[in-house]
Design a protein around this nucleic acid. Sequence first.
DNA 1: ACATTAACACCAC
DNA 2: GTGGTGTTAATGT
Length: 236
Amino acid sequence: MMTINFKRESFPTPIPTLLNSNIHPQSCIALFDKVPEVTLKKGDVLFREGDTPHFVYLVIKGMIKLYSLHDGKEMLEDYLQKGDFLNCEAVIGEIDKNKTVEAMTQMTVIKKIPISTFQKTIQTNPKLYAELLFNILGRLNRTQERLRRLILLSSQQRVIHFIALHVKKSGRQVGFEYVLKPPLTHQEIGNIAGAGRQTVTTIMNELRRDNIIHFTRQYLIVRDMDRLLALSGMKY
DNA sequence: ACATTAACACCAC
DNA sequence: GTGGTGTTAATGT
């Protein structure tokens, strides 16, 4: 017979002493302050479908993708970027073992802490709990955006829409332009937007001819965000 | 008409 | 050399 205990002894206060005595601002990110950074190359795998993860990861730089395989085809389930937490569902004891996780960009930087440490600290600090919820909400929105794109837009529009939103959010603004460095490969853009690699290449070259974007292997510039958004066929 | 895939050449690191 | 890009032809819906 299982009993569920809804009581939370130390929730919401007092704040435990040992674990967060050295955390200055109220931030989940601060939990990782003294943890060394790990740099991943594109394609490096953190763990595979079926593995049991033992860490919670924080993305510092670059992008991480979560996917499952279906007769050789990669199904992109989610992707994470700077400030996102991987396996943070562990705070409520949920651990997703059904996805492979790997670095999507060159020079992806992450930090990791044991799941138990993360769990204990977050569970006893409501502010951190709220911050985590907020972060997960961001991921949920991103996934919903992707679903909307997939259902409503043509493949051209999907690619354009993803590029517009992604660069606007993750690139830095320089004058009227947005620069994303490093960029994603056409293959990865295709995986996210639900389009073939060649399709992405062709669309991006058209956009380049029209001087709406520019790109090399090191960067992607959006020259005219308004036109790009207009071409995407979505309001925002 | 739209989109994906295969094939191949080419280029960069 | 390997991985990424550019282009076109064939094929499917």
